[in-house]
């Protein structure tokens, strides 16, 4: 009997690994720094993690279909570069949706190639897109730092009901993604395609369309992540979004989304993203000087 109980315990631990890791990390840092476990610091962590979380939510859709998107960091940079260089004078209500649309369109390019070039791994397609898009953004900015104008900067400082703007944005994307994945036919089809694309085709699901759509969503979320990030930091250097794909994928995977498709979801992803930021924040707090930031 104890064997079964032990196995069940192991299963519970494995299934809740991100949550447990999160708690362990909290306890360690709380015991190392008394400033760590404060509401202010926690808000800080969530705010800082929001852009990663939003992008990771987008990539969760792609991972659920057993795909991958390495171009998110580059999409992020392209969106912000266009915003800063060409859309700076427009009101935010116009420029932000435009940038989001650009992200969607770039995701659509990924999706187009993934669907059209069967047998070519999304890894390669999106790796190529990474270089091309980063090059395009560097061309636009002439590799110089770009700045966003006042209305966007002040947006970064705005709070509503005491909660920073970035967290609202994060919450909205999360809620929407959660509903889409759980409660819409499309969301359930994403899971079906990730589990078994052949069976999904037999069940009458339009598999290419589902694949195309998840890359569009991923591109959209990458652009949104860029907007949230630029509103916080106000300026984007030539390394903006560079190698962002790694923490973004890591957040989703830490949160329990399988790279083989069909398993996982956005709740875990959110935990994964906050976990990564918590570690980083905790290291700073406990004076481990982190030169290197993702």
């Amino acid at each position: 009997m104890s064997g079964t109980a032990g196995r069940r315990l192991a299963l519970v631990v494995l299934q809740n690994a991100p949550l447990i890791a999160f708690v362990v990390v909290l306890v360690i840092f709380a015991s190392l720094s008394d400033r760590f476990l404060t509401l202010g610091n926690f808000t800080n962590i969530v705010t800082q993690s929001s852009h990663i979380a939003i992008m990771a939510i987008g990539i969760t859709f792609v991972l659920l279909t057993a795909g991958i998107d390495l171009s998110v960091g580059a999409v992020m940079y392209v969106g912000v570069a266009i915003l800063a260089l060409y859309l700076g004078d427009l009101p935010v209500v116009v420029s932000f949706p435009l940038v989001a649309l650009i992200g969607l369109a770039l995701g659509a390019v990924n999706g187009f190639f993934v669907v059209q070039m069967r047998g070519l791994h999304p890894f390669i397609i999106t790796l190529a897109m990474l270089f091309i898009l980063r090059g395009a953004a560097l061309w636009m900015t002439d590799t110089r730092m770009v700045f966003v104008a006042e209305p966007i900067m002040s947006l970064g400082r705005t709070s509503y009901l005491g909660v920073p703007w970035a967290i609202w944005m994060f919450a909205a994307v999360f809620a929407l993604a959660w509903i889409v994945l759980r409660e819409t036919p499309f969301g359930r089809q994403v899971y079906a395609v990730g589990q078994d694309p052949v069976a999904a085709g037999k069940a009458g699901i339009n598999v290419p369309l589902v694949l195309f759509a998840v890359y569009c969503i991923c591109g959209l979320c990458a652009a949104l992540g860029g907007l949230v990030s630029i509103a916080q930091v106000a300026a984007a250097s030539s390394t903006f979004g560079f190698q962002k794909e790694f923490p973004v994928i890591a957040a989703a995977v830490l949160g329990g989304t399988s790279l083989f498709g069909g398993r996982g979801g956005v709740i875990g992803t959110v935990f994964g993203a906050i976990l990564i930021q918590t570690v980083e924040n905790g290291l700073v707090m406990t004076n481990a000087n982190l030169h290197h930031r993702w």
């Binding site: 070039m117 390669i124 790796l127 270089f131 980063r134 090059g135 560097l138 061309w139 636009m140």
Partner: peptide, 20 residues
């Protein structure tokens, strides 16, 4: 500048993939 290097690299990878 850097941007061309990047864009060309991306193009080359895609090209190699298409050739394959």
């Amino acid at each position: 500048s850097l941007f061309v290097v990047f864009a060309v690299k991306g193009g080359v990878i895609l090209f190699a993939a298409i050739i394959d």
